[in-house]
């Protein structure tokens, strides 16, 4: 024992109390089940106030549901994500794994009362959300037994990519080089010196008076944004 007297074994009850994570292979998923209609009731009392009755609200957060099609459910790729003109991205457009939803709702939702749902309630609201996006039918009962089948219908299950140089190890992909390559030209470089974008005049004071956001002494002051720019 390298460090005598430090730390102790965890009891099984302790591990059970905290070891709540659920992985994409459903390791950690507790047994249980919940129907779409049970989920709807829970949703309406415990989730809709923030996320909207159909998961469409963006009042406290991005919409959870929307933007996915039956075709996406078939292909596992959300088609609208390819469109540069479609700004919104709902949770169900992005999420690749149903486990991610289950795990997150179980640990963190409702936002103001996390960990207050029973296991079956988590199954049920998950079913309801999936049903809103027509991933599961109206009479569906999701459970630990069939969740792997549900995974096969997640609209963006094939929309992810882990082959990039921004993971600090070779656990996902080996030897990938950074994707953006720039060179350090020093003189007479081909530069774009035309201003293409700047803060519109009407936004001048949108972040408050910048004169009050800089120190009172120093090489410069903050710009007084309550008045128009000097010529």
């Amino acid at each position: 024992q390298r460090f005598p007297g430090i730390g102790r074994p965890a009891t099984p009850a302790e591990v059970a109390a905290w070891d709540i994570d659920v992985r994409p292979d459903f390791k950690g998923l507790p047994k249980g089940q919940g129907s779409v209609s049970q989920g709807e009731k829970i949703w309406e009392t415990k989730c809709a106030s923030c996320h909207g009755v159909f998961g469409e609200s963006n009042e406290v957060f991005n919409p959870l549901v929307g933007g996915t099609t039956d075709d996406d459910v078939r292909t596992g790729r959300v088609a609208t994500l390819k469109r540069n003109d479609y700004p919104g991205r709902t949770t169900l457009m992005k999420v690749a794994y149903v486990s991610t939803l289950w795990d997150y709702i179980n640990r963190a939702m409702p936002w103001n009362a996390p960990k207050s749902l029973t296991t079956n309630e988590v199954y049920a609201v998950t079913a309801y959300m999936l049903n809103l996006a027509r991933i599961v039918p109206d009479d569906f009962v999701i459970s630990d037994a069939n969740i792997a089948e549900v995974q096969k219908r997640m609209p963006n299950r094939n929309g992810m990519n882990t082959s990039h140089a921004m993971w600090p190890g070779d656990e996902f992909a080996k030897g990938v080089k950074p994707d953006v390559k720039a060179a350090a030209c020093m003189a007479n470089c081909a530069a774009e010196t035309k201003v293409a974008s700047s803060l519109p005049d009407h936004a001048r004071n949108a972040h408050g008076n910048l004169a009050e956001q800089n120190r009172l002494v120093g090489p410069q002051r903050g710009v007084a944004t309550t008045t128009p720019p000097k010529p």
Binding site: A13, A17, A113, P114, K115
Partner: peptide
Amino acid sequence: AQQREGDPAILELPEHSKGL
């Protein structure tokens, strides 16, 4: 008993794990 049960600081989730 403690072995079966464990530390209340673990078994009883603290307020901050259950609130906003």
